[in-house]
Amino acid sequence: MAGVQQGQWRAEQVPPQIWSEEVNQANKAALLAWVKETGIQLVQINGQRKYGGPPPGWTGSAPQSGSEVFIGKIPQDIYEDKLIPLFQSIGRLFEFRLMMTFSGLNRGFAYAKYMNRRSAQEAIAALNNFEVQAGCHILVCRSTDKCELCIDGLAPSVKEHQLMPMLQELTTGVLSVSLHPSPFKKQRQLAEVKYVSHQSAAKAKKALVEGSLSVCGDQIEVDWLKPNIKQELHSASVQTISEILLSSCTNRDTPSQMPPGPVDCHMLPQVSSVLNYLNIQCEERQLGTPVFLTKCVQRNPEGWLQFWYQVVIPKYPTPFSGFIWIKPDCFGLEDHEKVKNAVALQLLKILGKCPCKTYSV
Rank of each mutant, 00 (worst) to 15 (best):
V4A: 12
Q5I: 06
Q8R: 14
W9H: 14
W9P: 02
E12R: 15
Q13K: 15
V14A: 08
P15W: 09
P16F: 06
Q17V: 07
I18A: 06
I18Q: 05
I18R: 15
E22Y: 12
Q25R: 13
A26G: 02
N27H: 11
A29F: 09
A30Y: 10
L32P: 01
Y51C: 02
P55N: 04
G57Y: 15
A62G: 01
E68V: 03
F70S: 02
I71S: 02
I71T: 01
P75H: 10
L83C: 04
I84H: 04
F87A: 03
Q88L: 07
L93W: 14
F96H: 08
S103P: 03
N106T: 07
A110N: 01
R118N: 11
R118K: 14
S119D: 15
L127Q: 06
E131D: 05
K146W: 10
C147R: 15
I151N: 00
Q162I: 02
L163K: 04
L163I: 05
Q168S: 06
T171G: 01
L175E: 13
F184Y: 11
R188F: 04
A207C: 07
A207G: 02
L213M: 14
Q219E: 09
V222W: 06
L225C: 08
N228H: 14
E232N: 00
E232V: 00
S235T: 11
I241P: 03
I241G: 02
T250S: 09
T254D: 11
Q257E: 13
P260C: 01
V263A: 13
H266A: 12
M267E: 13
P269G: 04
P269F: 14
V271I: 06
S272K: 15
N276F: 08
N276A: 11
L278P: 02
N279K: 13
Q281N: 05
C282P: 00
L287P: 00
K295M: 09
Q298S: 14
G303H: 13
Q306T: 03
V312D: 06
K315Q: 10
P319H: 09
I326V: 12
K327A: 12
K338R: 12
N341W: 09
N341H: 12
A344E: 05
Q346S: 09
T358L: 07
S360E: 11
V361D: 05
